[in-house]
């Protein structure tokens, strides 16, 4: 029994260390240099990816479906309305809204893993395009963090 308690304590200590490490890696504070670095990833999309057209652009349900997906998977970090939070930058910034749909799709597929944005290729391609449709529908507003996520 004593051995079990020791092993459990060591494991919990290691878990605690991982929490601390994880939180130490701050992704993108609002309006910071870090945001600029995340937005800069959009420019790294290869030309072939950038040139892709959104196959959902004429689908009348794409924005609504994309909103559902956004609330499920993205709102936790980017905020329910996409204004960004302490965890992740605004999606209503000029950098995002002026980006080619293919570049946003590329970011969704590949993530920005070293800056906290996970890979979302586990969502099937049509769902990622639905997300692009929703993100593009948000429009441009100044980069301000959501004070109170609704």
């Amino acid at each position: 029994m004593k051995e079990c308690i020791v092993a459990l304590s060591v494991t919990l200590a290691l878990l605690g260390a991982s929490f601390a490490f994880g939180q130490h890696e701050k992704p993108a504070a609002p309006n910071s240099k870090a945001n600029a670095l995340v937005y800069a990833e959009l420019a790294k999309a290869p030309d072939k990816a950038r040139a892709k057209r959104n196959p959902m652009e004429n689908d009348p349900d794409a924005v609504a479906a994309g909103q559902n997906l956004f609330e499920r998977h993205c709102a936790e970090c980017h905020g329910n309305a996409g204004y960004g939070t302490e965890k992740a930058p605004s999606l209503r910034a000029e950098d995002v809204q002026s980006a080619a749909p293919g570049a946003i799709f590329w970011i969704l597929t590949n993530g920005v893993v070293r800056r906290g944005m996970p890979v979302w290729s586990k969502l099937p391609e049509p769902q990622r395009w639905q997300l692009v449709s929703f993100i593009k529908s948000l429009g441009v507003v100044p980069k301000t963090p959501e004070k109170k996520p609704d």
């Binding site: 494991t11 290691l14 991982s18 994880g22 920005v112 893993v113």
Partner: peptide, 13 residues
Amino acid sequence: LEYGATAWWTTEL
């Protein structure tokens, strides 16, 4: 208990 420490590291008990 599966925790996402970072986008490239997941730890689990």
